[in-house]
Simulated scan of single mutants.
Amino acid sequence: MSLPSHSPAQTSSPPASMESGALQQRVRRRLVAIIHEHRDAAGAYSTATQTLWSRIELALEGGKLTRPRLVLLGHEAFAARTEQGTAPEDGLERVIQMGCAFELLHGSLLMHDDVIDRDFTRRGRPTLSALYRDDALARGKSAQDAEHAGHSAAIIAGDLLLAAAIKLARRAADSLPAADAIEDSFHQGIHHAGAGELEDLLFSLDPVPAQVHEVLRMEKLKTAAYSFQVPLHTGALLAGADAAEAAALANIGSQLGVAYQLIDDILGTFGDPEQTGKSIESDLREGKSTILTAMAAATPGFAAHLQLFRDPDANVPAMRSALEATGAERFARQLAQDLCAGATSASRTLNLPDRVSSELEGFADLILNRGA
């Protein structure tokens, strides 16, 4: 799953307030404590699972903690007028718990993503899959059996993280009037991510790229929902926003999330790997349907090049040149700009606190200038 913050080169962040900086520190400490709690508990019944949790901790190190920051923004968008009489620390504690829940969910999806994409490196380091693969190789297993062992361990780790994420999200909402709505929103993010991943997989099996509206739907499901839309939505609900207000803020997140993935598609084909840390061949070689291939496929005369995109031995520079000639990159960047403009315009109509609007605009600027 091509999700935000996969590479060490993508370390820029939108302007952060002292509040969000302090939040990130607390989220990091809490995540370590949660993982250690599960690791220590596993020691009572399975030393192998205790080791698995230690390796999970290594795999989850780093990252920009974008999702917890969005939960905080969603909360701050409405907290000032909805939490009179409520201790500020109680609201922040719920934000921390929900932010950790999203990071555990993100880790779960990344573990499963490594299996789907058959990857053994992430952020320039061996994945958890690679560690168990290498263990199997050291025991004399064949390369095929060792890779199977590695991917199997990653599936198990992803399942454990998913269970922990769901439990923590429910705890963050416990006793609030909107508890059920918050839980439903978190579950929706999970289901949408799975649906988007499935569509991405099935599109790669088709003889022609998916259409533009299909790719946009897939990217909204796969990336925008759990990484942008639902963090803002649950943060708003934690603060006591009503359903319509929370949904309006969530829609801003959806637009930003789709724009992020559009730029990610562009960087996956035309970016500089030295700056982005992303391969510019994998999407093309795997026959993925991206906004670029979808836009190009709708261009007259491009049909003659379609066989390139289903040939694993095709010349990648030739594929890239064929895409470039259609103007797909230009169109995709314009679409991302339109989405970000729509998001920032909508944030102003909601009369959000100035700092919240400013940070949302910072996210939009970061999205559009990634890899620049």
Rank of each mutant, 00 (worst) to 15 (best):
S345Y: 06
A303T: 10
A165G: 07
I291D: 00
L262Y: 04
L73H: 01
S289I: 01
K278L: 11
G85F: 02
C340Y: 02
A77G: 15
H213R: 11
F309C: 05
I35C: 13
C100D: 08
A9C: 09
L58K: 15
A80N: 12
T269V: 15
T51F: 03
L366N: 04
I190W: 07
A297I: 01
A87D: 15
D145Q: 14
A169T: 10
C100T: 10
D338R: 14
H233F: 09
A163S: 15
I116N: 01
I166C: 13
R348M: 11
Q337I: 02
E219M: 14
V215D: 01
R133W: 05
K222M: 12
S46I: 04
H75Q: 12
S282W: 08
A225L: 02
L256M: 11
A297N: 14
A322F: 03
V208K: 05
E214M: 07
Q24K: 11
A153N: 01
D313V: 09
T293M: 09
L128M: 13
L31N: 07
A364P: 05
K220Q: 15
R30P: 00
G196V: 03
L131E: 14
S227Y: 06
I291M: 15
E359V: 09
D264I: 03
Y226K: 12
L60E: 08
V212E: 08
P209M: 05
Q229T: 15
L360N: 01
L323A: 09
I155G: 01
M1L: 08
A136D: 06
G21L: 15
A143K: 13
V356T: 12
A243F: 07
S17D: 13
L237D: 00
L352F: 09
G257D: 05
T82N: 14
Q50K: 14
L308I: 09
S279K: 04
L350R: 06
E89K: 07
L339F: 06
P209F: 04
H148A: 14
M1K: 03
L237A: 06
V71I: 14
A48M: 06
A296W: 02
P209H: 06
K220E: 15
T51M: 11
L109R: 00
A224D: 08
H148P: 00
L176H: 13
S13Q: 15
G62E: 07
A243N: 08
L105I: 03
R67S: 08
I166V: 15
P4N: 12
N351G: 08
I280R: 11
L137Y: 10
F228S: 02
G62P: 05
W53G: 00
V258M: 09
G62C: 12
R69W: 00
H38G: 00
N315W: 12
Q255I: 01
T47Y: 12
A173Q: 06
L70W: 05
E37L: 09
L198F: 14
G140A: 13
S282N: 10
R125N: 14
